[in-house]
Design a protein around this nucleic acid. Structure first.
Length: 818
DNA sequence: ATAAGAGCCGGG
DNA sequence: CCGGCTCTTATC
């Protein structure tokens, strides 16, 4: 057989793979995991990943040849392809979607149509239609335009006709341009030309240059620098040190006295001191470490349940050290939000240059470099610290995965597909590599705790806080009572104010937690009861005072705050509910002499916003910090002795089966910020319902009790860990279609799954960005086959898609939507 | 996803 | 009847 074909994965949400033909040489060269550029559809060029190479001509269509091979060696490993396949099948998405999530964007090249002017002479305006003239005119000023530029010039979507006309008349030309988005960073270095390296020649040279003091200066600096440092001399450095200009250096190069050369440079470089000695462990930490190691002898996965401030990190460090010295790579996964410089600096002190960091804040080029370093198993990529997407890196030799703050919900990706859970996917990844997994948390997720209790995972506890610091004292404040007795000032109870005042007097810091940003979530007219709503979503607009704006937190819509009611024109607008902004304002009035700051999405959006606030807090420039749940994660400060929770009730009443578990976790984590030194910290939780079981459990630090109670509830109401859930979401511009479609789908599901299908149900926000939404949940008992259930859902989905009426309804499937 | 082709309405 | 919009269909 002399025909060669390759099956490739394209980064599009289509189930099938695509087959192209290649010649024999290409077939011999190509390996699975290499990138190829291929023509796709009528005019596009895409990057695909080679999945298989074979001789089987596909039936029913002619294959196209590939455009180009993009790699010398695979950039995706066999292990990864296996992992991708698992992910696509488990999370019910396509390989293309996994590919898109996995690869740094810079690896994907895409073609774009470029339009250029061909006609030399100037045309009369009258020879064009209005639109044609606009394009022609734009091309006079710019040598080339993209399709999107033309769309914005003409202010409409369909521009093909206009381009077609101009093309026919030979006025413009089009070409497909392919962009390689990754550009290696190149640095210029300077050295003395070898012909001047001997002593005499040098002397002669310096004499010759007496009349050119600037050039002489550069030369002298070069000598000085090259004796000082044995490294190559960077041209920028040379220019700076010699106080000269680039032209002077250029002249010397032109004269043949200096030579320039280029070295490709890594963007990711650790600049810091040598690694310091690893802190020796306390007795408890040592025991935990030994327990983990012996657990790993029989379990591939172990849960480390360690209270806040117990020094889990030190235990990780020891374990990492041991794996690294056995020559294997380690992946340390954290929730995005906990990836603060604080933790990274700390780890860099131990592991120095062996660390690479990988997450979404990194530029595309930096991510490609980390990718390559991991793939080539470079010394600087032995320990990878990253958020959930770091599990897509091309590990060749993975020995250990640490999933820290295992319970964090941000490990789950909700949209777009793949809707994967970072922790669970890491378990599968580790399994493929035959590596171990260590999960850590002070408040484990019920699932993981259950798995540990039932022996599926190993289980190790670390009960003592580091240095025997006491857990904070937690006090519940009944604000219903306080309101009745008129002991509230704004949203502050007299107890909270007392404690804050005391704290400030002692020169200690305070953290206040309010799980809502903005000033107030609802603006209401007290005369007619009307409150402004988002035009695109079914929610009230949130009032943001600092911009005097009403904003929608779902679609970003905003408008200026009105003075009078839009319905009845009376100026009796009032706000309902409160967010961080309002608390900040009240504090400024209550404590005018103290520095108050706010930490939420609005203040940390800017690039170093987060770090700036943390620095300020560390340097005692902030006395009181108000914030959302951002506060709960991994901040480690010595001087915070009081944590206040403004209102625990909206957490508990959140409409989700995990609301109680989450509330417990969040309140525990927030509490953990108080008193990390000798002095015992204090936590005040304001609530309308101080006898709520969860609040009681938080105040007595009773995770186990919470676990037992919640587990019972989960069983009663058929929730994880006893049942698995697959959630299906329906979205459409038309309410009718969405409703009818979701009902049809539900009926079809019920034919087989009966009572374990719940819904369709309108979520608390029933319309977002003009799409109407409803949800259906499928509960899957332990004994029911997951694979078969998924197959059944797929089957129904296929039938659903073939019904014309429902063709516009979007169906999103979320496996383990928790 | 995404773009080309099919079907459908308002101005000449 | 054409140009421009929405819906449908195919992509190796």
């Amino acid at each position: 057989l002399n025909l060669y074909f390759i099956d490739i994965i394209l980064p599009i949400p289509l189930k099938q793979s695509f087959t192209y033909n290649v010649n024999k040489d290409e077939a011999l060269f190509l390996k699975p995991g290499m990138r190829v550029a291929v023509p796709f559809g009528k005019s596009k060029i895409y990057t695909g990943i080679v999945f298989a190479i074979h001789n089987n001509a596909p039936l029913g269509y002619e294959t196209k040849p590939i455009d180009q091979i993009l790699d010398e060696n695979p950039i995706i490993t066999e292990h990864q392809l296996k992992h991708w396949q698992w992910m696509a099948s488990y999370y019910m998405c396509t390989l293309g979607e996994v590919m898109r999530a996995a690869l740094p964007n810079a690896f994907l090249l895409e073609s774009e149509t470029i339009i250029t002017l061909l006609a030399k002479e100037l045309y009369e305006e009258s020879k064009f239609s209005d639109d044609e003239f606009l394009v022609f005119e734009a091309l006079q000023h710019q040598s080339s335009l993209h399709i999107n530029d033309i769309r914005s010039i003409l202010d409409r979507k369909n521009v093909v006709a206009v381009i077609q006309k101009l093309l026919e008349r030979g006025i413009i030309g089009v070409q497909e341009e392919v962009f390689e988005k990754y550009s290696p960073k190149i640095k210029r270095y300077i050295k003395l030309s070898p012909s001047y390296s001997s002593e005499e020649n040098l002397k002669y040279l310096l004499e010759k240059l007496t009349r050119a003091p600037k050039q002489r200066q550069v030369l002298m600096t070069l000598f000085m620098l090259s004796t000082q440092e044995k490294k190559p001399i960077d041209s920028v450095l040379l220019q700076k040190k010699s106080e000269s200009t680039s032209t002077v250096i250029k002249t010397l190069i032109d004269k043949g006295i200096l030579e320039e050369y280029f070295i490709q440079k890594d963007r990711i470089e650790f600049e810091g001191e040598e690694s310091s000695e690893i802190k020796s462990l306390t007795k408890d930490q040592e025991i935990a470490l030994q327990d983990i190691k012996s657990s790993f002898e029989t379990n591939n996965i172990t849960l480390l349940y360690g209270v806040t401030s117990s020094g889990k990190t030190e235990v990780y460090v020891q374990l990492i050290e041991e794996i690294l010295s056995s020559g294997k790579q380690v992946l340390y996964m954290l929730p995005e939000i906990a990836l603060t410089t604080q933790l990274i600096t700390r780890l860099q002190m131990y592991f120095g240059e062996k660390i690479s960091v990988y997450h979404s804040k990194y530029s595309v080029n930096e991510r490609v470099e980390v990718w390559r370093n991991v793939l080539e198993n470079k010394p600087k990529a032995q320990l990878i610290i990253g958020a959930r997407s770091s599990l897509f890196l091309p590990f060749t030799n993975l020995g250990l995965v640490i999933v820290d703050e295992e319970h964090e919900s941000s490990f789950k990706q909700y949209s777009p597909a793949p809707r994967y859970h970072g922790r669970d996917s890491a378990v599968v990844l580790a399994n493929i590599h035959n590596a171990k997994v260590l999960m850590g948390s002070a408040t484990p997720s019920l699932e993981s705790f259950y798995n540990a209790k039932t022996g599926k995972y190993g289980f190790v506890t670390l009960k003592k806080r580091y240095g025997n610091v006491l857990l904070p004292e937690i006090e519940l404040v009944d604000i219903k009572e306080k309101y009745r007795k008129k002991r509230m000032t704004g949203h502050f109870s007299d107890r909270l104010l007392e404690e804050i005042t005391q704290c400030l007097e002692n020169k200690e810091q305070v953290i206040l937690f309010q799980n809502r940003r903005g000033f107030s979530p609802i603006v209401e007219c007290t005369t007619c009861g009307v409150s402004p709503q988002c035009p695109n979503c079914d929610v009230s607009l949130t009032y943001h005072q600092y911009k005097n704006q009403l904003r929608c937190h779902y679609c970003g819509y905003n408008e200026p705050m009105m003075i009078s009611c839009i319905a009845c024109k009376s100026e009796t607008l009032d706000t309902k509910g409160f967010g961080t902004e309002q608390i900040e304002l009240e504090l400024k009035e209550l404590f005018p002499k103290h520095a108050i700051a706010r930490m939420d999405q609005d203040t940390t959006k800017r690039k170093h916003g987060h770090a700036k606030i943390i620095d300020a807090l560390e340097n005692d420039e902030i006395d009181i910090l108000v914030g959302t749940q951002m506060l709960a994660k991994g901040l480690d400060f010595r001087n915070i002795s009081l944590v206040g929770v403004m209102n625990a009730d909206n957490l508990l009443n959140f409409p989700d089966f995990r609301a109680h578990e989450r509330s417990f976790q969040l309140l525990q984590q927030v509490s953990g910020r108080a008193g990390r030194t000798k002095k015992r910290g204090k936590v005040l939780i304001q609530t309308f319902n101080p006898f709520h079981q969860i609040l009681q459990q938080v105040s007595t630090n009773d995770y186990e009790k919470m676990y037992v109670e919640q587990l019972e509830d989960r069983y009663q109401f058929k929730y994880p860990p006893h049942f698995r859930i697959i959630k299906i979401t329906f979205k459409d511009r038309s309410f009718q279609k969405m409703q009818k479609g979701s009902q049809w789908f539900t009926e079809a599901l019920k034919t087989k799954l009966k009572g374990n299908v719940l819904g369709p149900e309108t979520p608390s926000v029933g319309r977002i960005r003009n799409l109407f939404i409803s949800n259906v949940s499928i509960k899957i008992p332990k004994e029911q086959s997951l694979a078969k259930t998924k197959e059944f859902i797929e089957k129904i989905n296929r039938s659903f898609n073939s019904i014309k009426e429902f063709s516009s309804v979007r169906v999103l499937i979320d496996v383990d939507n928790y």
